[in-house]
């Protein structure tokens, strides 16, 4: 095999997103971008596959409004090189647009045998980009992959579905969409972080891969993004300096009254 490419998405850390209680808008001020958690397992799968397939190169691929800062982090997780595409036109990219851009990026790289995507992104959770990308490339795809092995240009994959596990074989070129349990994603150590600084990363442009801002326009117009109302009371049972035992006694009484204990 020549190249294995891993698509990773640069997303906001959702743990730091807050809701403005009045407007129900999202406050993303404190939230920093990071590599989509699920894609860390995708990158680890790439490292494992490169080794077992004896592939020449592991490539990281990402696109979005501002993806350059992602390269260092991605490179510390195993790829030999990262290709990123940043364009303001992608700030509103939906799954349709993202998969079109990624397909054109993969084509422009050439010699890619396996593309690895993860099941979903932590922001939209659409679970669409991997299979869409395969359809656009005209390649077979296998989704919900929980185990991977390789022999020459043939991959054997386990898919975890609702009804059970399906084992399939498929020849490269192929897009595989991995679930988080496919392999562990080790946290990069000092050595990996230092060696990432020496690895190359390259910027691609929409025009350079033959696309225009027009072709990546979303097919649906966003009307609103609002947090739903929560109606929980959030009663602090230790608000008046109660001991744990007192708080528990209050809780038991309350739950019994509500008839839920």
């Amino acid at each position: 095999m020549k190249k294995i490419a891993v698509c990773y998405k640069w997303v906001l850390n959702d743990a730091d997103i807050r809701v403005n209680e009045k407007s129900r808008d999202l406050d993303v001020e404190k939230s920093k971008p990071q590599i989509n958690e699920y894609d860390r397992n995708g990158l680890a799968t790439g490292v494992m596959l490169k080794e077992s397939a004896g592939a020449a190169e592991l490539v990281g691929v990402t696109c979005g409004a501002d993806t350059e800062p992602s390269a260092k982090d991605a490179l510390s997780r195993g790829p030999d090189v990262v290709y990123y595409l940043s364009d303001p036109a992608l700030a509103q990219a939906d799954s349709t647009a993202s998969s079109k851009v990624l397909a054109a990026m993969i084509r422009s790289l050439g010699d890619v045998d396996v593309v690895i995507c993860s099941e979903c992104s932590s922001d939209e959770y659409a679970q669409q980009v991997g299979p869409r990308l395969a359809a656009l490339l005209g390649w077979p795809s296998v989704s919900y992959v929980s185990a991977v092995s390789v022999n020459g240009d043939t991959l054997t994959l386990d898919r975890k579905l609702e009804e059970g596990t399906e084992t399939v074989t498929v020849k490269a070129p192929v897009v595989i969409v991995v679930s988080p349990d496919v392999c562990d994603a080790p946290i990069p150590g000092v050595k990996q972080i230092l060696s990432a600084k020496k690895k190359p990363s390259h910027a691609l442009t929409l025009a350079g891969i033959g696309l225009s801002a027009e072709t990546v326009k979303p097919l649906a117009a966003v009307q609103s993004v609002k947090a739903p109302l929560t109606s929980r009371k959030a009663v602090n049972l230790m608000a008046d300096g109660e001991s744990v035992a007192e708080a528990v006694a209050k809780l038991v009484k309350q739950l019994s009254t509500e008839g839920v204990l």
Partner: peptide, 12 residues
């Protein structure tokens, strides 16, 4: 969006 933190409404 974000695992239920927000709801996005879109039209096509």
């Amino acid at each position: 969006l974000y695992g239920g933190l927000a709801v996005k409404t879109a039209a096509t």
